[in-house]
Design a binder for these strands. Structure first.
Length: 636
RNA sequence: GGCGGUGUAGCUCAGUCGGUUAGAGCAUACGGCUCAUAUCCGUAGUGUCGGGGGUUCAACUCCCUCCACCGCCA
């Protein structure tokens, strides 16, 4: 095997599923990857940064059908949205791989064939519980019911046991090699806590993996057996190979393979830390250096997801603040492995305090003084005194720390350390009081020295923040009269003294404007989807009376009720058994929405819904009217 | 249930091999400055270090136990 040449760095994000629209979670992963790759370039690496989209599967097929378009058209649309977001976020990816492109499909088929010839892929029979309505196999953890059936958790219908012919990957043979890998490379899985989880998972033993489906048409066909199509993970994971030229650009492939780091969310760690290296071992390929499972951004302490409807659209923030504050916040607020809670308060606070007050204001006050007292050009100055020398020494310390933090992907710490230095420069100005010296013509050269030192420090600061805030960093260098761009400056060779007397320094508007929370929320409000009164009127809300109530067998929360809505009764299922006993509900009068589209819940039709307050722990509290309110009264 | 983790200031967290008065940032209060985006600098705090027990001259740190929360277990 050819050893990968030094100073080549290959970094990946997951490929994002085109069933989803881009949200803050996608942005987070990709921004991390961008910051790391920019840092790696500064340290003299040639970097290849791969991202892309996962476009096959039943969900895409169905969603496209619902929209009356072809799956590939749906994919094209969503790919456009991803690419636009990456552009808005200043993401410097080198290649965007799509699982529907022929280089990928051919590559996956080739690998499939190779593993089949080798005996690591074999044809067998998959047994499982299949939901006809959802056209989907249920996951193993759905409990078995008395009659030997299972209930589909998605639609509530019965799912029967079926057998399906399919191809398996011999994952079971790779238990030992995987455990050896983890032992040999303790950094294969990061953060460390995740390594333990994966190890114990693998130690429990591995079953062979079903990697094809006959029920999914929108996928890569199995070579010589086109009734079968290759299932999601075997298809998707290989993007890391096909995206770097496997089987179509040997030069590129040989230069960069294997990946130095796969950046992923913690939810897909198992696929990347178990299945993926096993596939690669089977194919006789070199393994990646690290799989890094980062945490999630939470909203109100719960995971952001499409189904919860709490997805945060990055565009709202981008429109008000621009790219860099968002990049900064996401990378500064939490260490890579941990979850973070996203709130507008937190965001505004951090950005105002760190960017507007500390950094932005430092740049502003320094450049303003240089302009005011020297017309933007410092040429002659005194020799350095003790405080000046100290400021330079602190730069050296800071540079070392920042570099080592970036090296270990502790981006938040690299930023924190940079801010220690920013505060020192602010203090340096406070201690030396240049605005007082400016009043005394004889102290002009001392004044020049102070402002020069501050400007040199700012130049260094801009360099340190470049991986995270490239736009602002470049802007600061331009303001300081630098003619080269930051990306051309090697990290190792960065010196305090690189800042030279006579550079033409420009005036500036504030780099990061302060935004007050209430102003921002006003902006947000404009984005809200208001309901018109006519739309509200469509809702038929009435005072119902519960006539019968019983707990739904085999569920924790569901209660089945008959409710009188004024001369008519409806059947209604409600998840309130946490808080209420079925018997106590009889005779109670909740608010019921009666013209909601009926839904099937746990196999039972629900023809109405009652209104309840959702508590933090997920339980529900229902408001009831007293007996003085007639059953069937309209509520509005 | 099994394995792993966490619990330290109002909030978010740091605390290396046990060793002086347990730290940082934010928030709060007061003071200073006026170059700057009401910004910047300084000062001041407050802690049963989750509870209980043990080892030790000495425990946030090691051991036992209990409690609470979290993660993983296709």
């Amino acid at each position: 095997m050819v050893e990968k040449s030094k100073n080549k760095f290959y970094i990946t994000t997951p490929i994002y599923y085109v069933n989803d629209i881009p949200h803050i979670g996608h942005a987070y992963t990709t921004i991390i990857a961008d910051a790391i790759s920019r840092y790696k370039k500064l340290t003299g690496n040639e970097v290849f940064f791969l991202t892309g989209t996962d476009e096959h599967g039943q969900k895409i097929e169905k969603r496209a059908e619902a929209k009356g378009i072809k799956p590939i058209e749906l994919a094209d649309q969503v790919v456009g949205r991803f690419k636009n977001l990456w552009k808005a976020l200043n993401i410097s990816y080198d290649y965007f791989v799509r699982t529907t492109q022929s280089s990928h499909e051919k590559g996956v088929q080739k690998i499939f064939q190779k593993l089949k010839d080798k005996g690591d892929i074999y044809k067998g029979v998959y047994e499982g519980y299949y939901c006809v309505s959802c056209e989907n196999f249920l996951s193993d953890d759905v409990p078995l019911e008395k009659e030997g059936n299972k209930t589909c958790p998605d639609c509530g219908k019965q799912a029967g046991k079926v057998s399906e012919e399919c191809y398996f990957f011999k994952l079971s043979s790779y238990q030992k090699p995987l455990l050896d890998l983890y032992k040999k490379n303790p950094y294969f899985i990061r953060p460390k806590s995740r390594m333990n989880e994966i190890k114990s998972f693998v130690k429990q033993g591995l079953k062979d993996l079903s990697i094809t489906r006959t029920t999914v048409k929108w996928g890569i066909p199995v070579p010589d057996d086109p009734d079968h199509s290759i299932y999601v993970w075997f298809d998707a994971l290989h993007n890391y190979l096909t995206g770097i030229g496997y089987d179509w650009n040997p030069e590129l492939y040989n230069k960069f393979w294997p990946p130095d780091i796969h950046l992923i969310g913690k939810d897909i760690l198992r696929f990347h830390a178990v299945f993926w290296p096993a596939f690669l071992m089977a194919g006789g390929l070199t393994l990646p250096g690290t799989v890094f499972g980062h945490g999630w951004w939470l909203k109100d302490k719960t995971k952001i997801s499409k189904s919860k409807g709490n997805a945060l659209d990055p565009h709202v923030i981008l429109n008000t603040f621009g790219t860099d504050p968002l990049r900064y916040f996401l990378l500064r607020e939490i260490p890579l492995g941990l979850d973070g809670n996203f709130s507008h308060e937190g965001f505004i606070h951090r950005v105002n305090s760190d960017l507007a007050n500390d950094l932005g204001n430092l740049v502003q006050r320094t450049l303003t003084m240089i302009h005011k007292y020297f017309s933007g050009n410092i040429i002659e100055m005194d020799e350095k005194n003790e405080t000046d020398i100290k400021l330079k020494a602190e730069f050296v310390t800071c540079k070392d720390k920042v570099a080592s933090f970036y090296e270990e992907f502790a981006i938040n710490k690299a930023l924190e350390e940079t801010w220690v230095y920013i505060n020192l420069v602010n203090k340096y100005l406070a201690d030396n009081e240049p605005w007082k010296l400016a009043k005394d013509e004889s102290k002009k050269k001392r004044l020049a020295r102070i402002l020069f030192q501050a400007a040199a420090a700012i130049r260094a600061i801009a360099y340190f923040i470049y991986p995270v805030m490239p736009e602002s960093a470049d802007k600061i260098w331009t303001l300081l009269g630098e003619d080269k761009s930051i990306s051309d400056q090697s990290f190792a060779e960065l010196e305090f003294e690189d800042f030279k007397p006579g550079q033409n320094i420009q005036r500036t508007e504030p780099l990061f404007p302060r935004v007050e929370l209430k102003d921002f929320l006003k902006e947000e409000e404009k984005k809200m989807d208001y309901l018109t009164f006519d739309e509200f009127k469509k809702m038929d809300l009435r005072v119902g009376e519960i006539i019968k109530a019983e707990k739904v067998e085999g569920t924790q929360k569901l209660i089945k009720m008959e409710v009188d809505i004024g001369g008519e009764t409806r059947q209604m299922i409600s998840g309130i058994a946490d808080t209420y006993e079925a018997d106590d509900l009889v005779g109670k009068k909740p608010i019921v929405i009666v013209n909601l589209k009926p839904a099937v819940i746990h196999g039972i039709e629900s023809q109405a819904m009652l209104l309840a307050a959702e508590m933090k722990d997920g339980s529900a509290i229902v408001p009831f009217f007293g007996d003085d309110v007639p059953t069937g009264s309209k509520v509005k």
